[in-house]
């Protein structure tokens, strides 16, 4: 080849060396992935080995006890269900309402931008901060004799609502923003006003996304221990709360409590409790994934 060179200098491909580098990088990244997966696998294996023998009907239907063989997590299970229900009750209307306002009504100005950025930032605040805030406001400020709150379910639910509201708002905004503008235009063109457009054309399309985000937020809420510890003060509960103004305990706290005991049997009970909590969380996440998939296939039709 006698082609004229139009650049000066030598090209040294060094393919062998590049191949070695490429291979090393591949192995490095594979190992990084394995650390996470193996770590999680070991954790689950350990918990299952320890806890499975202790999971039985009695464990699910008995109250905590000083005797590990008679101890169960009924009060914690119901506390968690209560807490989840109440938190959803507060979070969904407020979170979806705020998302609708920010996406559909708010003028696009500096103030809105500041609010949006702060909502995102709030989603990253450590949960113990919300716990202390909740304790300060709901328990101490509104918890005196003449006020109605104390270390009760509703105080816990309000605190967890503060914790997950940013998540619900962000998820709801995402799915509202994903609604094609042509739906809104179509609805306006038939003489619908703003609320009719939102109610009839925007929310039905955004519903699945909002639901998915809410479920994920709820699963975050019921897995939290720190903020609930600040609210409940680790009380020993041997009843099922009958109304939102009773004191309560939840699964993460019951697990925390058992782990802290010296006897080995309680450690195993803690492992069993972790399994129950994991099953609930995985079920909720599975429902969320299922709804998302169902929604996606429908919109591609």
């Amino acid at each position: 080849m006698n082609k004229d060179k139009f650049i000066t200098g030598n090209i040294n491909p060094n393919r062998r060396f590049r191949k070695i580098i490429g291979g090393c990088v591949y192995i490095l990244f594979l190992l990084s992935t394995c650390v996470g997966i193996i770590g999680l696998g070991l954790l689950i294996f350990d918990v299952l080995k320890e806890g499975i023998p202790w999971i039985n009907w009695q464990f699910l239907t008995d109250f905590p006890s000083r005797d590990p063989k008679e101890a169960g997590l009924l009060s914690a299970l119901f506390g968690t269900i209560w807490l989840m229900f109440l938190t959803a009750l507060f979070t969904v209307p407020i979170g979806v309402g705020a998302a609708i306002y920010l996406e559909e009504y708010a003028p696009k100005n500096l103030l809105t931008r500041v609010i949006e950025i702060n909502v995102s930032n709030l989603a990253g605040v450590p949960s113990i901060v919300y716990g202390l805030l909740g304790m300060g406001i709901f328990v101490y400020r509104f918890g005196s004799d003449e006020m109605f709150l104390d270390r009760v379910l509703i105080a816990g639910a309000l605190t967890l609502s503060l914790l997950v509201l940013p998540i619900v708002i962000l998820a709801s905004r995402e799915s509202i923003r994903a609604v094609p503008d042509s739906y809104r235009q179509g609805a306006y063109a038939m003489g619908a006003d703003k609320w009719q457009v939102i109610k009839g054309a925007v929310l039905p399309s955004a519903f699945s996304g909002i639901l998915t985000g809410t479920i994920l937020a709820m699963s975050r809420a019921i897995g939290e221990a720190a903020p609930v510890i600040a609210i409940t003060a680790l009380v020993y509960i041997t009843y099922i709360p009958a109304h939102p103004f009773e004191r309560f305990t939840v699964l993460p706290i019951q697990i925390f409590n058992w782990v802290a005991r010296p006897q080995d049997d309680f450690r195993s009970l803690a492992a069993a409790g972790i399994i129950v909590l994991l099953v609930i969380l995985l079920t909720m996440n599975a429902i969320a994934v299922f709804l998302r998939n169902k929604y996606q296939t429908r919109s591609e039709e």
């Binding site: 739906y183 179509g186 619908a192 009839g200 054309a201």
Partner: peptide
């Protein structure tokens, strides 16, 4: 509009929507 933009509802509900809002 330029691109057909039916709502993600049934055929029936697409038409009923405008009647309902009015």
């Amino acid at each position: 509009f330029q691109k057909p933009n039916p709502f993600p509802k049934s055929i029936y509900q697409n038409i009923a929507f405008g009647l309902k809002v009015n």
